[in-house]
Amino acid sequence: MGSRVSREIGHDEYDPWGTLSLIVIYFVALTLMWLFTYFVEFIGNTPTVMGMIVPVMLG
């Protein structure tokens, strides 16, 4: 199924720079997402449902 190899690249002449670039972007994204979830969503919010049980049940 369609793997048209146009050249052979051996172990010694291959350096995965593209992979490194993608992984750097990925780690930056992970860090930003985690900082957001921790500091804004977790620290920054008050409890959502606590203390509401009576009004919920009474409808």
Binding site: S3, R7, E8, I9, G18, S21
Partner: peptide, 25 residues
């Protein structure tokens, strides 16, 4: 795994004539 698998894909892309930092995709 993220590293090894992406590096294997990049190896394939370069063998298929892919070039550049992101253009190999």
């Amino acid at each position: 795994t993220a590293f090894t698998v992406v590096a294997s894909m990049e190896h394939g892309a370069r063998q298929r004539g892919g070039e550049g930092r992101f253009n190999w995709l």
